[in-house]
Design a binder for these strands. Structure first.
Length: 271
DNA sequence: AGAGGTACCTGGCAGC
DNA sequence: TGCTGCCAGGTACCTC
């Protein structure tokens, strides 16, 4: 479900409710997520003060004085701030108790998400250590992409979805950014000019920032922490629009499969 | 080292 | 109506 904008929207939505809050316990109904939720979540994290919530790539980091809870929403995860007496539904796997009134509730039907505990610097955690730069940071630009792409033959779409290259670009925004930059999704990463890579880096930043500004993309079930949907779906130029006319040239938007993921593009505009 | 495939899991939908 | 097969926003891990 969530790509970087949806995770950032979630972070901004929950932070006012959890920042500087002492947790009043944790309830785990389903421990089997991508990895089993470790016992330290109950024995350590459950009674800490959450100082801040950070985001790195698509990971949310709940920082406390004695360690960090690392949360990933996987394909289908979501977080909601709700009243404590709201009955849990199927797939509501974890509750973080916030004071007397509120609960931060994790729902994840497919259970590809993760909740882990880390007592060292979370950026050194094996899951985070090898991540590429944040796409919205100054470290990410066309020159960086040119350096990384040198002699690589992988298709550009897979290249920008590789979290070691750049963190947080998933299927929707990879499609949209390549359309915006006019680059064919199958083009080899090592055969793209520096000028075009600068356009691509700018397009990735713009697409992600626009999506964050309107609350992310709700395709089927993404909701913000307050329960409202995101509105970027109506801004999508090519994603999930196979057969529709290209908004730029009027040609027909095509759908192909790359690495078992759907790719949408316009053959007239992307080379 | 890079590239490609597989696995994890459930729900929704199209087609029969 | 009910079954089957396919698809879905992610990513670690395996093999070649």
């Amino acid at each position: 479900m969530p790509e970087l904008p949806e995770v950032e929207i979630t972070r901004r939505g929950i932070e006012p409710y959890v920042r500087c809050q002492r947790l009043g316990g944790v309830v785990i109904r389903q421990r089997q997520l991508r990895w089993p939720v470790p016992r330290e979540i109950e024995s350590r994290f459950a009674h800490q003060v959450i100082e801040r919530v950070h985001r790195r790539a698509k990971y949310l980091l709940f920082q406390t004085g004695s360690g960090t809870a690392i949360l990933h929403l996987g394909m289908s995860g979501s977080l909601r701030v709700i009243n404590v007496n709201t009955p849990p539904q199927l797939h509501d796997h974890v509750d973080l108790m916030l004071g007397q009134q509120k609960v931060l509730r994790l729902r994840d039907p497919r259970r590809f998400g993760a909740l882990l505990w880390c007592e060292r610097d979370p950026l050194d955690h094996p899951l985070l250590k090898h991540l590429g730069p944040e796409p919205l940071s100054d470290a990410f630009d066309g020159e960086y992409l040119v350096r990384q792409a040198r002699a690589r033959r992988v298709a550009i779409k897979g290249f920008i979805m590789n979290s070691r290259i750049v963190a947080g670009v998933g299927n929707i925004y990879a499609n949209e950014a390549l359309f915006s930059a006019g680059i064919h999704p199958r083009r080899a990463a090592g055969r793209i000019s520096g000028a075009r890579y600068q356009r691509l880096a700018d397009a990735i930043k713009a697409v992600l920032q626009q999506a964050i500004a309107v609350g992310g993309t709700t395709l089927r079930d993404f909701l913000r922490a307050d329960g409202t949907p995101g509105y970027f779906r109506s801004e999508l130029q090519v994603y999930a629009r196979a057969g529709e006319p290209c908004p730029r040239c009027g040609g027909k938007i095509r759908c192909i499969v790359q690495g078992q993921r759907a790719t949408y593009y316009c053959a007239g505009c992307q080379h």
